[in-house]
């Protein structure tokens, strides 16, 4: 059996919180020092989670708000999301709520796999977001909260691993739900039904028409 492939999207609504640094540390074990805003980068990484080999497709996205038109597409393609802010900026946390709403709306799933990440934990002296505050936010979302330092490579793997576990769990839940519990899978099927209906509505009286 081939390995399972999971699509992870790294999002943040502010530039410079360290999305790319976090991703590069995770994938390539390097620390990027330069001023290098991202437009869209993709990576692949093999990882072992609970004894299972998985392939992670990671999409690192632009924090610059001028690129928001691309977000919706990213959200559609992703299965799990890292929402990254910097603990040195309160507004970078505030802005994430809107992103999360958008994800839930697009995935049509309030329990979509998601991790809240407070990066730059090495800059303790500049901290503007207390641990408790961020934790409360994550609790409200029903998602875990991690503080990371991409610079020191602290908690980096853990974040991705947690997200991966969530994706696997959600995957199992959903496939079970569609089999047994009609309520869980209902919406998905609704859409499928509609698609089917759209196709079947086409009544073809004359199967073979020569124009």
């Amino acid at each position: 059996m081939s390995q399972r492939e999971y699509h992870i999207v790294v999002l943040g609504s502010v530039g410079g919180v360290g999305k790319s640094c976090l991703t590069a540390q995770f994938v390539q074990n390097v620390w990027i020092e330069s001023y290098d805003p991202t437009i869209e980068d993709s990576y692949r990484k093999l990882m072992e989670v609970d004894g299972r080999q998985v392939v992670l497709e990671i999409l690192d996205t632009a924090g610059t708000e001028q690129f928001t038109a691309m977000r919706e597409l990213y959200m559609k393609s992703g299965q799990g999301f890292l929402l990254v802010f910097s603990i040195t900026s309160m507004s970078s946390l505030h802005e994430l709520a809107e992103l999360r709403d958008q994800i839930i709306r697009i995935k049509d799933d309030p329990r979509v796999p998601l991790v809240l990440v407070g990066n730059k934990s090495d800059l303790e002296e500049d901290r503007a977001v207390s641990r408790a505050r961020a934790f409360a936010v994550s609790q409200g979302w029903g998602s875990p909260y991690y503080e990371t330092s991409a610079r020191r490579r602290a908690n980096v793997d853990e974040v991705f691993k947690d997200l991966c576990r969530q994706i696997i769990r959600r995957d199992v839940e959903l496939s079970r739900a569609t089999d047994s519990d009609p309520r869980e899978g209902r919406r998905r099927r609704d859409t499928q039904d509609r698609n089917r209906r759209r196709r079947s509505n086409r009544s073809r009286e004359h199967r073979c028409v020569i124009l």
Binding site: G15, E65, S91, S92
Partner: peptide, 15 residues
Amino acid sequence: PDYSSLLRANTPVSR
């Protein structure tokens, strides 16, 4: 404070 964050934040002004 640091060079790498200059002009990166989304603020009322950047908007």
